[in-house]
């Protein structure tokens, strides 16, 4: 079954939602979620353009003869990017915890030691 351009639209939606979150939300944890959404959108985009209709996993030894394969490189890229995304999310959340300990709030409007 072909999904057509649906995955591309979905990835664009994820990116737009993420940008909306980053621009209009003020909770530090929600901002992390926004960043993750953008990242997921980009990851979906990477996997999608590597997909070939009715393709099989790109493993030579097990592939049935004369079958199309999906592109392997975008999948490798996506895996790497997911791992990196996990690290950045964890780091951001740990900073959010520290900010909360110092300020007692996660509201970005109230946390503003750094101005000018």
């Amino acid at each position: 079954m072909s999904l057509g351009n649906l995955p591309f639209i979905a990835s664009a939606m994820l990116v737009i939602l993420g940008i909306y979150t980053l621009l209009f939300k003020r909770n530090l944890v929600k901002l992390v979620v926004g960043g993750s959404l953008i990242e997921t959108g980009v990851n979906l985009f990477l996997v999608t353009f590597g997909y070939r209709t009715a393709g099989v996993a790109p493993i030579y030894t097990y592939a049935p003869a004369a079958k199309r394969m999906v592109l392997p490189t975008p999948q490798a890229l996506t895996l790497t990017s997911i791992v990196i995304g996990m690290a950045t999310t964890a780091l951001l959340l740990s900073f959010a915890i520290h900010v909360y300990r110092h300020h007692g709030t996660l509201d970005a409007r109230k946390v503003k030691e750094l101005k000018g």
Partner: peptide, 23 residues
Amino acid sequence: PEAAYKVMTMYTLAGIFVLLAIG
């Protein structure tokens, strides 16, 4: 921590832009 949070958000965005371009 506040500075680190802010910088990390910007760096992550920058990284995503670069990744999108690479894709």
